[in-house]
Design a protein around this nucleic acid. Structure first.
Lengths: 138, 138
DNA sequence: TTTCATGCAAAGGTTTTGCAGTCGC
DNA sequence: GCGACTGCAAAACCTTTGCATGAAA
């Protein structure tokens, strides 16, 4: 399935705009209220359906930090692959990129293949800890 | 909070036994039915409460592969830290350890600290792909 | 017209909570 | 007896689904 198969309607465009306008990782409900504030009336179900569609077409990533809700982020094809820093104090999710990570992951995939005959297709890395602000406010 | 603060009742012991007896990653419901088969009558709510207690005390890990349910695994303090291989075909979750990973993660935590002033306390790595069996059955 | 998108409400599944009863020290 | 643990049922929560309406080609 590829991106060109996705028809972009007005509602879908609105959701896409919200996701592209932020660095944050939004839940379906976040998007719902952001659009409401912009006077765009849309059903939650439509947002869920759209996000699922986007996900299946590689337009957004799902982020699951384990708090019971799914977050989404726009996949910018031109940007570097990144992972997530989750602050266990304030719950904020930040992105990071690490220059040595791609090389490590490539080697890791190779070793996993040899050792377990498991073909790695994608990965998610979550680092949990204390963010700058929470560090400072102690 | 530390492990010694957790009182181990009969029901809690039963849950712990189930988790220690398997390599699999069990949901609360899995545990419920396993105990039922052993003729141990226990409420689902108790299992949830116990797992949450165990989690807060570092006795179990939460595994969230994004399918809407939380899985748990016993934390064996003596064993090597491992991560997860999730098969996107059959949904099976396996564990792996990689000899180069600890060194990489140590360096990564240091770089994250320098670059973002984020203190890394723990991490989760999920590798998604196709497992041995699903590879072979194609 | 025909197809697909949408909104609403209801249903679904997992997890949490309130409360009364029970256990163990 | 007291405090903590447990079971049940109900509630809460997020997400999906069914169906009728509406928009677009």
């Amino acid at each position: 399935m590829s991106r060109r198969n996705v028809k972009i309607t007005k509602k879908r465009q609105a959701i896409l705009d919200v996701l592209r306008a932020t660095d944050e990782h939004l839940t379906a409900e976040n998007i719902y209220f952001i659009l409401k504030r912009k006077n765009i009336k849309i059903g939650l179900a439509t947002i869920y359906r759209t996000l699922d569609l986007f996900y299946r077409n590689g337009i957004v990533n799902k982020i699951n930090i384990g708090d019971g809700t799914i977050r989404y982020e726009y996949v910018d094809k031109g940007s570097v692959h990144h992972h997530h820093l989750v602050c266990i104090k304030c719950g904020k999710v930040m992105e990071y990129t690490d220059e040595k990570e791609p090389e490590f992951l490539e080697g890791l995939a190779k070793r996993i293949k040899e050792k377990y005959n498991f073909t790695v297709l994608s990965h998610e890395i979550y680092l949990y800890g204390i963010c700058k602000e929470c560090n400072e406010s102690e």
